[in-house]
Amino acid sequence: MKEQSTATSVLSVRVSPDERALLEEAAAQSRMTLSEFMRRKAVEAAEAEVLERGVVTIPAKDWEEFEAWLDRPAEPIAALSALARRTPSWKK
């Protein structure tokens, strides 16, 4: 199902002929127009960049509790321990 775009602003980008050919091929394989492909991928990259560079602020009154939580030994998770013991499907 295609997502309806409500885009109303034009963004122009210069690319080399090889880059354009690659982008057009990727868009075709994704069954999207070049414009739709570029918009989606640019927005995904921007979201990842913004999230990666986000700053978390911990109030001073909570800092000691946070440090204590960091210093606690890790608690085992049974499901992860079981998963780690399984033979990977590609080795069966």
Rank of each mutant, 00 (worst) to 15 (best):
R85D: 06
E44D: 14
V43W: 09
T8N: 15
I58Y: 04
E25V: 00
L80M: 01
T57H: 14
E24T: 03
V15K: 08
D18H: 09
A79I: 11
V10E: 15
W69N: 03
L11A: 07
P59M: 08
A82N: 02
E3H: 14
R39V: 03
D71E: 09
A21M: 00
S12A: 09
L34A: 05
A21L: 07
F37D: 11
S89N: 07
L23F: 06
S81M: 13
E3W: 10
S16N: 00
E24Q: 06
P59H: 01
K2T: 11
W69S: 00
A46E: 08
K41E: 10
S16M: 00
V55T: 15
S5H: 11
K92V: 02
S35C: 13
T57S: 14
A42I: 04
A45P: 01
T6C: 12
S9M: 13
M38G: 05
V43S: 08
M38T: 14
A46Y: 15
F37H: 12
F37A: 01
L11Q: 07
M32V: 07
R86W: 00
R39M: 04
K2H: 15
A48N: 13
W63Q: 15
L22M: 15
V56T: 12
A68G: 06
E47A: 05
S16H: 01
A45H: 07
E3F: 10
S5C: 10
S81I: 09
T33A: 07
K92Y: 03
S5L: 12
S35G: 14
E75R: 03
G54Y: 13
R85V: 14
A46F: 12
E36H: 12
P17A: 04
A45F: 02
A79R: 04
W63M: 15
E47F: 01
E19K: 03
D71R: 08
D18A: 13
P88A: 02
R53I: 01
I58E: 04
R40A: 11
P59S: 10
K92M: 02
A48L: 05
D71N: 11
A7T: 12
F37I: 04
E3C: 03
E49K: 13
A48E: 12
A28D: 00
A27K: 05
A84C: 01
E52A: 14
A21D: 05
A7C: 12
A27E: 09
S30R: 13
G54I: 10
E67C: 11
P17S: 06
